[in-house]
């Protein structure tokens, strides 16, 4: 198998099955199948686990770029879309569980929560911002949008910050876990800042070299 085939027939299906594993586990717990138990409050457990799984996939999506250059595996990029779509999928399930199982479709409470509870406001904003990214994740949309696709998908940085912040803000007291998420996100974003800076510096020095070159070439002639 060549690289394309390995990804198409082996790695992508594996990631797909792994991505569905949390959902399968929670479903078994919800219905008491195979001895899986979600404890005394299964609704909260499903809600929180879906939220955390969404964040996990979001961070994995953001880890693809550093991983491919640090490990020298450019082909990892082929997995990124699926990881991102899993993040979106679990955010949607997380929100649905909150609306249906937790609020029991109490729409006025939903409205009040989104308007009055800052952690829900930012979580909901992150969900809304993910929709255009999921909608433009196809090859066709990538082609059609060209450079604007890249610009649009930079929204993922904002979404990830909102998502981790949403997690941090809803915790009652023990913020250790959300802080771990925040730390990982900070590293992933820092990597990009450092890369962008060094790229900018490289470009600047290249420009300087280009403009200096004719000068240095002509200067000796004038003296």
């Amino acid at each position: 198998m060549n690289v394309t085939q390995r990804y198409r027939y082996l790695y992508k299906p594996l990631v797909f099955v792994a991505g569905l594993a949390p959902l399968a586990w929670l479903t078994c717990g919800a219905f008491g199948l195979f001895g899986v138990s979600l404890g005394a409050d299964p609704v909260k457990e499903i809600e929180h686990e879906c939220g955390k799984t969404a964040l996990n996939f979001l961070l994995l999506t953001l880890a693809v770029t550093p991983a491919k250059s640090l490990l020298g595996l450019p082909q990892l990029l082929r997995l990124r879309r699926m990881l991102g779509l899993f993040a979106f999928f679990y955010v949607v399930v997380h929100f649905s569980v909150y609306l249906i199982l937790d609020l029991e479709l109490n729409w006025s409470t939903l409205g009040a929560d989104i308007a009055k509870r800052p952690y829900i406001t930012i979580g909901f904003t992150a969900l809304l911002l993910l929709i255009p990214l999921a909608a433009t994740s196809t090859n066709g949309m990538m082609r059609r949008l060209g450079r604007r696709w890249t610009q649009l998908h930079r929204l993922v940085y904002v979404i990830a910050i909102l998502g981790v912040w949403h997690f941090y803000w809803q915790v009652k007291r023990d913020v250790r876990e959300p802080l771990i998420y925040a730390g990982i996100l900070a590293l992933l974003l820092l990597y990009r800042v450092v890369r962008a800076r060094s790229a900018a510096r490289a470009a600047a020095s290249a420009r300087a070299h280009l403009t200096a070159a004719p000068g240095s070439a002509t200067a000796p002639e004038r003296t």
């Binding site: 409050d41 929560d113 509870r117």
Partner: peptide
């Protein structure tokens, strides 16, 4: 950070 108007019975 959250409403106390309703509660969920475990």
């Amino acid at each position: 950070r959250w409403s106390q108007a309703t509660e969920r019975r475990i």
